[in-house]
Nucleic acid binder design. Sequence first.
DNA 1: TCCCGGACCTGACACAGCATCAGATACCGG
DNA 2: CCGGTATCTGATGCTGTGTCAGGTCCGGGA
Lengths: 218, 218
Amino acid sequence: MTTVDEQTGIVEVDSDLRAADGRVPGRRGLATRQKLLSATRELLDSVAYRDLKVVDIAQEAGTSPATFYQYFPDVESVMLALASDLSEAWHDDLRKLVSNRDWDGDPDGSAKVVADGMLEFWTRHKPVLRVLDLASMEGDLRFREIRAFLLAGATSALMDLASERHIPGDPMASAGVVVGMLAHVANHQHGLERWGVPHDVLVDTVAGIIRRTIVGLP
Amino acid sequence: MTTVDEQTGIVEVDSDLRAADGRVPGRRGLATRQKLLSATRELLDSVAYRDLKVVDIAQEAGTSPATFYQYFPDVESVMLALASDLSEAWHDDLRKLVSNRDWDGDPDGSAKVVADGMLEFWTRHKPVLRVLDLASMEGDLRFREIRAFLLAGATSALMDLASERHIPGDPMASAGVVVGMLAHVANHQHGLERWGVPHDVLVDTVAGIIRRTIVGLP
DNA sequence: TCCCGGACCTGACACAGCATCAGATACCGG
DNA sequence: CCGGTATCTGATGCTGTGTCAGGTCCGGGA
């Protein structure tokens, strides 16, 4: 999270980073905080968010529960931080993914690169993105905000594309639905593949929907 | 859930319905069980699954935590039962939704009815379906099975349609992706509408994707 | 080198929710 | 009205939460 202090105008990275007692953490403290974040991400591979306990995170990080509370008020806040970091990473990846793509000359290839890239990113960070999805669905405003920001880049990129092409229908709705579809397919990839749909067929199918819905080609 | 006892061949509705001590519940017991189910569904409207406590469910149902454990081993099992019931209900709704639809004469209207119907069902039962989605994503096999069964009806209906029409691409993948998209849009409807996409535009967009992807019309 | 002050960590504790059981209560057929 | 079984619950041990006061670690100054 990058923010600008309204009072001083100072740009701070990971602002509001302060321990429970109000102190600003130093080198050692930041390392501990990082260890807690990593431990949480690690645990999320094997245990459901619902069953994530402070005790376990602390143990995995090689520290005590009391220390956990020095850096985060609860487990949800760790997720928020992880999701926020991911949001940054995604915007970097996205830039490489959609910029300078030849939609006129090679619409199929372009759609495929976007579909594949997003699927890959979602698969790589599945555990955190899963929680982001759930918490958003359940109405948590802070998670919703991050999710909206995370999807906004992809959505607006596709929306612009749809607008340029003057496709029938609402560009915003089309882009929003397509991006949601990508996220959903990524999350349930495993299920579809178990149903007998191989990964590359899935990518082709999704790319086809992007092409027809956004680019406006048959 | 309807099952057939392999040994006896006896068809049982809600088989394995037995209290914690192994007794088969009578009229009064079934009523209590039902009250617990309703209470859970009720609570799910206002509190996140993650925060659903046995104490709260018991209180909402006007009984004690100990009674809860008479009928369910844990909160997850209640969700399983609710999801299972929903799965039955959906298959009934689905039958009315897709049967005798005129895809050749009125593809737009047909696609719209399916899109609208599914969105409506998902919205009506959002809390339970949300949990079903989450638990499936997190890899819980029992929830996955129910989700697969729930989506299978819609998926195979669309798959058959896609096969008949000889659309390019894999019918199974197309149907799976489209059904997933519908579920996802239903879950995140609120977000899209807040983004300024009205409900009817959303339905049109989704119907358009169904038409182009499944029916094979521009 | 030693020491000292602040940054950091943790053991101990009070409390909430989980899960279980023995015993109390409610209901039904006779 | 009574006995027996189905149903319910108060009491209880246990796991995990969240908060202190006080201990440990570390780097900079003498």
